[in-house]
Computed example of a mutant assay.
Amino acid sequence: MSSLPWFSDNKFPLYLAPMAGVTDVVFRSICKELGADVMVTEFVSAEGIIRQDDRTRKYTEFTDGQRPCGVQLFGGDGERMGEAAKKIIDWKQPDFIDINFGCPVNKVVAKNGGSSLLKCCDSLASVASGVAKAVGDQVPVTAKIRIGWDEKNINAPEVCRILQEEGMQAISIHGRTRAQGYRGEANWDVIDACAREVSVPVVGNGDICSGEDVKLRRETTAVSGVMIGRAAMQNPWVFREAKHYLTTGEHPEPVAVTERWKMIIRHCSMAMESDRYGNERQTIMAMRSRLMTYCKGFPGAKPLRQRLCTVSSLQEVKDVAAEYLQELCEA
């Protein structure tokens, strides 16, 4: 049985998936307010932690209001990963340490991190064991994987057995292979098979966009929770909407465009206050891709996104919002 209390009493937690460059401390705060149950930081390099690199350390920051929150590590050396995990626990005492065995990005895979370890179960076991032994009973250790390297090498059930044996107390599974990246559909049959293979909680990830999706996976698979990633980027209200649907069986009223704009402006303001990206210009420029994602599906989204890709101040964002809402009223 897992020592992670958010799985107790038949709870079915909704995780915010860790996404590099997206799930920073500000966005996690927003999603927590809107109903996300469990947070995981953006992944951080074990080597960066050991070198006490200030930029790397920033990625481990979270607020007490975001708990339960885990810090996600990547790397290919179990001993070094364990050392990094201990440093993080000394700094911040997260609710758990999560090991990234799923990232498909080339620069991570090239360093024998992320999903590259799915190709070598001995190395994967060594990393999992190294972290679990180093951490001991200070905090639980969990892992995130993909279903395999490619369609010919779908080995998630075997990987889950190994991870359980090496002390992982929960496993999150993205239902695509490394070769797929984010294309095609997530394979929930494999996720379900993994959940039935091990006794620790399995959290399913992939194509969860609504309360209906959450209900379907809760009722038709053996997972103990779900993880929502890309859908939350466009619609952080998805957590609140899903809980409403699970409770009432009804979809809530869609979030009004005016409320969405208030959130967009608030997100920009919070990002500036966080000092994560630098000065106002640097922050708003870093936020451009996020702003364009928020506006997917808006009426007249294409010209709107073209305007947002050039903003460099908070006032410009406010001006775009005001002009857009005025145009919408007049249409």
Rank of each mutant, 00 (worst) to 15 (best):
A143Q: 04
D319S: 14
P68V: 06
M272W: 03
R240Y: 13
R307P: 00
V44F: 03
T220N: 01
P94D: 15
D192H: 12
F239K: 11
E47P: 00
W91Y: 15
A232G: 09
R281E: 09
E166K: 15
R80L: 10
E219D: 11
F96D: 02
G225F: 00
A179L: 14
K296T: 08
E219T: 03
I49M: 13
Y59P: 00
A286R: 10
R146F: 07
V127E: 04
Y245G: 03
V255R: 02
N112T: 04
E151I: 05
I50L: 05
T221E: 04
G229L: 08
F298W: 13
R290N: 13
R178S: 12
C329Q: 13
D122H: 11
T221C: 05
G204Y: 15
P303N: 00
V190H: 02
M1I: 15
S172R: 02
D275T: 07
P254I: 01
D275Y: 10
M81N: 03
A17N: 08
E197H: 00
M263P: 05
V71P: 02
V38I: 10
A85I: 06
G181W: 09
S172A: 15
V317W: 02
S312Q: 14
A170E: 09
E47I: 04
W6Q: 05
D77V: 11
N279A: 11
L163R: 04
P68M: 10
N187P: 00
A20K: 10
A271V: 12
N279I: 09
N153I: 12
S224W: 06
M287K: 05
R28W: 12
G70T: 02
V139R: 01
Q282N: 04
P140Y: 02
A46D: 01
W6F: 11
D9Q: 11
A170L: 13
E83R: 08
I264L: 07
Q66P: 07
P18R: 07
K296G: 08
I171W: 13
G65E: 10
V141Q: 12
A256L: 15
S129L: 04
L124A: 02
C69F: 06
S3W: 07
A331V: 14
R176M: 00
S115P: 02
H267V: 08
L124R: 03
W188L: 01
G114C: 12
A179W: 11
Q282W: 01
E158A: 11
V38L: 05
E79G: 07
Y324V: 04
A46Q: 00
R281I: 05
A186F: 10
L117E: 00
F27G: 12
R57Q: 09
A222C: 08
G206D: 06
R260L: 09
Q93P: 01
G181L: 10
L328T: 01
M263D: 06
E33D: 05
N10H: 09
K119F: 03
A322S: 14
E241V: 08
H174I: 03
G249D: 01
N106A: 12
G206Q: 00
G35M: 09
I30F: 12
K296F: 07
V311M: 12
R217N: 08
F7Y: 04
S269R: 10
V135Y: 14
R290P: 04
K92L: 05
V127T: 00
I97W: 00
I284G: 01
E273L: 14
A36H: 08
V255E: 05
S312F: 08
L308E: 14
A193G: 06
V223W: 13
A322P: 00
R230C: 03
